[in-house]
């Protein structure tokens, strides 16, 4: 094993996920590995990453939290209620799903 020079910080094996949204723009990197640790601040249950809206979804409460430039905003005040009828869909516009939905 090669020794690391002092001061150099070895890389962890965790990588960051970078997505491209439908408009072809690079959206904020969010490291999905964090899902192992993160929780909804209100229900304390695990969150689901929704790349389309760049949000972390708490299905337990039907609340979404924004991720801006890779940084999850997980204060209770950051949460917004998701109005979609279908729990699987995180679109907060048309309940039957809308491919033109733009991220909030």
């Amino acid at each position: 094993m090669r020794a690391y020079k002092s001061g150099a910080v070895p890389y962890s094996t965790r990588g960051a996920a970078v997505g491209i949204n439908e408009e072809g723009h690079k959206i904020a990197d969010f490291d999905e590995g964090l899902l192992e640790f993160l929780a909804c601040p209100l229900s304390k249950t695990p969150l689901r990453w929704d790349a389309d809206t760049s949000s972390l979804i708490c299905d337990e409460l039907g609340v979404g939290y924004p991720v801006k430039n890779g940084m999850p905003n997980l204060r209770p005040v950051d949460g917004h209620v998701i109005e979609a009828r279908d729990k699987e869909s995180s679109s907060s516009q048309q309940p039957w799903g809308d491919t033109d939905a733009s991220p909030k």
Binding site: V9, Y11, T13, A16, M71, P72, L74, R75
Partner: peptide, 12 residues
Amino acid sequence: GEGGGLSWIVGD
């Protein structure tokens, strides 16, 4: 933190 050792989370 290059390669992911640091994460930044807004929380209370």
